[in-house]
Simulated assay, not measured.
Amino acid sequence: MAKITAAEVNKLRKSTGAGMMDCKNALVEADGDFDKAVEILRKKGQKVAAKRADRESSEGAVIAKVNDSNAKGVIVSLNCETDFVAKNEKFVELANDIAELALNCNSKEELLDAELNGLKVSEKLIEQTGVIGEKIEIGDFRTLEAPFVGSYIHAGNKIATLVGLSAQVEGAETAAKDVAMQAAAMNPVALDEAGVDQETIDKEIEIAKDQLRAEGKPEEMLENIAKGKLKRFFKDNTLVNQDFIKDSKQSVAQYVKSVNKDLTIVGFERVALS
């Protein structure tokens, strides 16, 4: 049997992220063969992943990244089972590495197929499932492209947002971050009225009518009053129309105009872990 040195164990640990004892046991089983030991650890990950496939992975880290030109942003959520793992430094580091890769991808499938430290991301997730002992998977994957994209990650990596602005002008970076913070805090359903789907509109009108009927309002008045309530819904729930959280005397759209009169918000993405 090959003599396993501390240096060999450390090398395998750095390569895979597995614990010291797991690395030593894998090297012993592989009779000192490094590549075979890596494969043993990977197979362990596959077994753990299969056992935990039906587990719920509602915890994790949500990471937003923007490329060097500020023309494209991504949000990736790396999900796990417990908050304990979600706060682990190595787990957050992995989430950041995957999000960095995602800047060059256009879909979750493309990201899973991308290479990270010599492995496909899909293989890396299985490997880390074996290391950590929990189900690990990519939950959400969003991209946003615009003349200027800014991002915001809420403390604890539970919420991340992207905001796209119409131009890369002076003050765009601050404006984009402020609006991204707004989207994180206020959870708008759409950018503006046009972005609200008809199903949501119909539902809000019916809710308003039911409330008005309960108040004893005549049936013939319901439609007009309900439409008035719908305008209030748009104001409270669409990003450009919401009161700006840093200055409630102006809307978000008005705040952006104060940075540059021609500047507008062209899109946003928000991902949150429940």
Rank of each mutant, 00 (worst) to 15 (best):
C80D: 04
K51H: 08
G17N: 00
A226Q: 10
A183Y: 09
Q254A: 15
G130H: 09
K231S: 03
D83E: 10
N117G: 02
M20I: 14
F148E: 11
T238D: 12
K14P: 01
L119P: 05
I245M: 14
I132V: 15
I159T: 15
V85D: 11
E123T: 10
A30P: 12
Q128F: 14
L12E: 06
V85N: 04
E39M: 02
G171H: 06
V149C: 04
L239T: 13
K249P: 03
D83A: 09
A26N: 01
D83R: 00
L27M: 13
S274F: 05
K72V: 11
S258C: 09
G133L: 07
N187H: 03
S107H: 03
Q168Y: 07
N96T: 12
K72W: 04
L94R: 05
N260M: 09
M186D: 06
T5K: 05
A190K: 01
E199W: 13
K108Q: 15
A50N: 06
V131H: 01
L116W: 05
D210R: 01
R42P: 00
A6L: 06
C105H: 00
E223M: 04
D243H: 02
N70V: 08
G118D: 07
D197T: 02
V271L: 14
A226L: 11
I98K: 00
R270Q: 09
V266S: 04
N79I: 11
V179C: 14
D197K: 01
Q198Y: 04
N106V: 02
R232H: 07
E115F: 12
V259I: 14
S107F: 05
K257F: 13
L103W: 11
L101Y: 11
V48P: 04
V85E: 07
